[in-house]
Simulated scan of single mutants.
Amino acid sequence: MVTNLAQGKQVFTSNAFLVAPDVPDDADGRTVVVDPGNEFDAVAEIRERVSDVDAVVLTHTHSDHVGNVSAVSEAFDADVWGFDPDHELVDHAIADDDLVEMGGYDYLAVHTPGHKDDHLCFYARDSGVLFAGDLVFANGSFGRTDLAEGDRERLIASIDRLLDLLDGDLREMHTGHGPSVTREPRRHVEAAAEAARSMP
């Protein structure tokens, strides 16, 4: 079960996803927050839905994605996982090709720089779910490359690598901003790859 905790919030925030087992209180599945967002009460939103959080997982460390990290981590005594173990908010490193268990499914961590050096996407083949962070968005949009650490060629290479990993069973794409995609999400990733190559 994936819920966007930031839905409808009119503040400077990314989407913030609560990933919980499909069966409540499933002992075999970890409840995780992917990117707690910024400038809203994420702790209250979480407590409306679940009693505990096992971990916080970051797609990357831009401020709109991590502003609520400390509050969520402290409220639930949850460690924070991300690509860069030297970042002050990250307790444990997730390496490229690691498997990260969230909501009862194993997600492949894919290092996808271009928007930011520490950017990760997470893809679960069994459930057909992708967390794309700010790499790609609905309708063929793609992550900014005009910020520090941004690089268009690296972004294109990251999108291409992600496309190579995605199979025909991709059902849902949850992005760092804008709506999630539940209808032919792979086409949106393909469109982002084309747009990133063609736009100045």
Rank of each mutant, 00 (worst) to 15 (best):
V110F: 09
D52N: 08
I159T: 00
Y107D: 03
L120I: 10
L135V: 13
T61G: 08
N4Y: 13
R161Q: 04
Y107C: 05
D84H: 14
L120M: 15
R161N: 04
E149G: 06
F17W: 15
S158Q: 07
P185N: 05
G168D: 15
D164N: 15
S198I: 02
E194H: 01
Q10D: 15
E39P: 01
M173A: 06
P200D: 15
T3Y: 13
E149L: 13
L120Y: 12
A71E: 14
A20H: 02
D117Y: 12
D22E: 04
V80P: 11
D146Y: 12
E194Q: 05
Y105R: 05
P21L: 00
P179W: 10
A148T: 03
K9Q: 15
E45P: 03
H62K: 12
L120P: 07
R186L: 06
H60Q: 09
M1F: 03
G114R: 07
V110G: 03
A44F: 02
M173C: 05
M1I: 01
D169Q: 10
K116H: 09
V23T: 09
L108I: 08
F40R: 15
D134T: 12
Y105V: 01
E39W: 02
G104W: 04
A132W: 12
R30W: 11
A157I: 06
M102W: 06
W81K: 07
E39F: 08
A75L: 00
P185I: 07
M199C: 03
L18V: 01
A20C: 02
A192Q: 00
E39N: 09
D28E: 10
S73G: 07
T31A: 08
V69I: 14
R47Y: 02
G37L: 15
T59H: 11
A109L: 05
N4L: 14
T145F: 15
T3G: 01
V43L: 03
L130H: 08
A78F: 07
I156L: 01
P85Y: 06
Q10K: 14
S70F: 10
G176Q: 15
D91I: 03
A109Y: 12
V19L: 10
A55P: 11
V19A: 04
D134C: 08
A78E: 06
L130R: 11
I94R: 03
D118E: 14
N15R: 05
R30Y: 08
A6H: 14
S63C: 08
F122D: 07
D25H: 05
E39T: 09
T182V: 08
L162G: 03
A124F: 09
V72I: 03
G29R: 02
E190V: 00
A93H: 10
Y107R: 06
A78T: 08
A193S: 09
E190S: 00
V110K: 05
L165G: 07
E74G: 01
D164P: 04
A109W: 14
D96S: 03
A124N: 13
R161I: 02
L130F: 13
D160Y: 00
A109C: 04
